[in-house]
């Protein structure tokens, strides 16, 4: 029922919060349950392939092993290094996990499921629900404020750019070589924050192998005016790490997954709109 009402309110922020809160509640409850109960919930409610393990390797006690598929579906959203696959014990397709870790993975499963279920249902709001949806919407707006769509500043704000992008610009200006991935990142980043194509092309002028014609062609390609007509977005931080483009990540970097999100958050702070506030 809550999912249905949330769906009709159509407020993304409320959906996310509700999903997160419910998932956290599930985590707190699960953590205290017996291994038998946890195993039962994981396998029957969520369809996981989970096995009782009860093995101690060095000092850590692993209650279960979970199939790699069920593990990865949830772990990919978790960013601490302990969740990454190379740091896990993997035995014939099953990942060793502690009871606490299973609870955390189920939390993730719950969160994603609520998000899926609370998407906008088809059709109009049924009459019987109308007043409840209105009341709930009123409450959401009271708590979270009127939805404002924060728009990026019209003119690019260099101070709001993430360390990797600034580093790329510095390197170009100093005449140092910037590799393909770096160039692509810079061009796609600048185009996505609203920099004009001419401006972007100019940025590459200090490059040792600068060719105006080639650069323009490629910038237009990234901008979606040529070739496949796809407008490219900026690569994700994980990709940039792989290619060595990520540079001296700062505190804000830890909260984002894409350089564009960094820019959005930082410019919001810089332009005095303030960061998103939690209610109370």
């Amino acid at each position: 029922m809550s999912n249905l009402i949330l769906g009709f309110i159509g407020e993304e922020r409320a959906r996310r919060r509700f999903a997160l809160a419910e998932a956290k509640r599930a985590y707190d409850l699960l953590r205290q349950e017996s291994p038998e109960k946890i195993e039962h919930i994981a396998s029957s409610t969520f369809g996981w392939r989970i096995k009782k393990l009860e093995t101690k390797l060095v000092r850590r006690f692993y209650d279960f092993s979970v199939s790699m598929t069920d593990y990865l579906r949830n772990s990919v959203h978790l960013r601490e290094p302990r969740w990454s696959l190379p740091n896990r014990v993997l035995d014939h397709g099953f990942v060793y996990v502690t009871r606490e870790e299973v609870a955390r993975l189920i939390e993730e499963e719950v969160r994603v499921r609520i998000l899926e279920r609370s998407s906008r249902p088809p059709g109009d709001i049924p009459r019987q629900l109308g007043s409840r949806v209105d009341r709930a919407r009123g409450l959401v707006i009271k708590w979270l404020g009127v939805p404002t769509k924060y728009e990026l500043p019209r003119v690019p704000v260099p101070e709001a750019m993430p360390p990797c992008v600034r580093h790329l610009i510095e390197n170009l200006n100093e005449g140092k070589n910037v590799q393909h991935m770096g160039r692509f990142t810079l061009a796609s980043f600048l185009l996505n924050i609203g920099t004009g194509e001419d401006e972007v092309v100019k940025m590459f002028k200090p490059a040792t192998d600068f060719s105006e014609r080639m650069t323009r062609y490629q910038v237009e390609h990234i901008g979606g005016r040529r070739g496949g007509r796809t407008k490219y977005t900026c690569p994700m931080c994980t990709t940039l790490k792989t290619h060595g483009v990520c540079y001296k990540p700062d505190e804000l970097c830890e909260t984002i997954r894409n350089p564009l999100s960094y820019y959005k958050a930082k410019s919001r702070i810089l332009t005095n709109r303030g960061p998103k506030r939690e209610p109370n």
């Binding site: 390797l57 190379p86 896990r88 014990v89 993997l90 035995d91």
Partner: peptide
């Protein structure tokens, strides 16, 4: 880690 343990260990 010990020899004979599963995976990377």
């Amino acid at each position: 880690p010990q020899l004979g343990q599963p995976g990377w260990r």
